[in-house]
């Protein structure tokens, strides 16, 4: 998450916005974001439907698995990867999409 905070100025440059989604409650996320100094939104999705829709919630699991998803301006998923975020790969994808988009 700190890596995303570090890259916020680059996401802005590529006209991208970042948000995190977790099954933790709002209060927990609030204090966690404060402790890490995160300034981008974290969403509490206790019911887990976002993780289910995006393939990050295994059946019976109480938590999401780690997954990074990039959605384009048309709402299409253009990148999805499990595990620790590969920040450089994410930036390269965002740059490419931004160039494709011409925005």
């Amino acid at each position: 998450m700190e890596g995303h905070q570090r890259n916020l100025y680059l996401y802005e440059r590529f006209n991208a916005r970042v948000a995190g989604v977790s099954r933790d409650d709002v209060t927990t996320l609030k204090y966690w974001a404060q402790s890490l100094g995160l300034s981008f939104p974290l969403m509490s999705n206790i019911s887990g439907y976002l993780g289910l829709n995006l393939g990050a919630l295994a059946q019976g699991s109480p938590v999401f698995s780690r997954r990074t998803v990039i959605i384009d301006r048309q709402g299409m998923i253009r990148y999805a990867k499990d595990g620790s975020p590969n920040y450089r790969e994410i930036l390269e994808v965002l740059k490419k999409l931004h160039e494709e988009d011409g925005s």
């Binding site: 976002l50 995006l54 990039i70 965002l94």
Partner: peptide
């Protein structure tokens, strides 16, 4: 149509 690319992070806190 949304005005920007959206990077969504699903995470285990």
């Amino acid at each position: 149509k949304i005005p920007f690319l959206f990077l969504l992070l699903l995470f285990l806190q």
